[in-house]
Amino acid sequence: MPYSASYIKEKLIKELPASHVMVEDQSDGCGAKFFVLIVSDKFAGKPLVLRHRLVHEILKEELKEIHAFSQKTLTPEQWEKSQSPINTSS
């Protein structure tokens, strides 16, 4: 069963809970290759490997059929910092 970006997004928002989730289907619609960006308080204090394991556990069944899955996991503070314009004035 192919999965849609909206299905994955809703599941991540519900299960984490996440304040921001962006899911990009990079497989031309066949549901086999995804990139996700997830912002959640649950990532605070956790190293990258534990963040990724948490996401993999949530999508355990889906990942049996998804062939390629990449993710970027951020805390709300990291997300906010990444959205700030860079101040280049001296």
Score class of each variant (00 low, 15 high):
25 D>F: 04
63 L>C: 08
79 W>E: 07
14 K>R: 15
8 I>T: 00
8 I>R: 02
79 W>K: 01
74 L>I: 08
29 G>E: 02
27 S>R: 00
34 F>N: 00
49 V>A: 09
41 D>I: 06
35 F>L: 09
47 P>T: 10
69 F>P: 00
84 S>A: 15
3 Y>W: 12
60 K>W: 09
83 Q>I: 12
26 Q>T: 13
16 L>K: 07
27 S>T: 02
74 L>S: 02
35 F>K: 10
71 Q>K: 00
4 S>T: 14
58 I>G: 00
4 S>A: 01
86 I>T: 11
61 E>W: 06
35 F>P: 00
68 A>E: 04
26 Q>D: 07
16 L>E: 05
65 E>T: 14
11 K>Q: 11
73 T>K: 03
73 T>F: 05
59 L>R: 13
42 K>G: 01
7 Y>H: 10
67 H>T: 00
64 K>A: 13
78 Q>M: 10
46 K>M: 12
86 I>Q: 14
69 F>M: 00
14 K>E: 15
24 E>G: 01
7 Y>V: 02
6 S>F: 04
52 H>S: 13
81 K>E: 14
15 E>F: 08
44 A>S: 11
27 S>E: 05
30 C>W: 00
63 L>H: 00
18 A>G: 15
88 T>K: 13
22 M>A: 13
61 E>N: 01
49 V>G: 07
81 K>W: 08
78 Q>E: 15
13 I>Q: 11
70 S>F: 00
22 M>L: 14
36 V>C: 09
61 E>R: 02
9 K>H: 10
75 T>K: 06
35 F>D: 08
26 Q>W: 06
50 L>Y: 09
35 F>T: 10
47 P>C: 09
56 H>T: 13
85 P>R: 15
51 R>T: 09
46 K>H: 10
63 L>T: 01
18 A>F: 15
3 Y>H: 14
21 V>W: 02
37 L>H: 12
35 F>Y: 11
16 L>C: 02
56 H>P: 03
64 K>W: 07
48 L>D: 06
29 G>N: 03
20 H>T: 14
57 E>V: 04
37 L>V: 13
1 M>D: 07
81 K>T: 12
31 G>E: 08
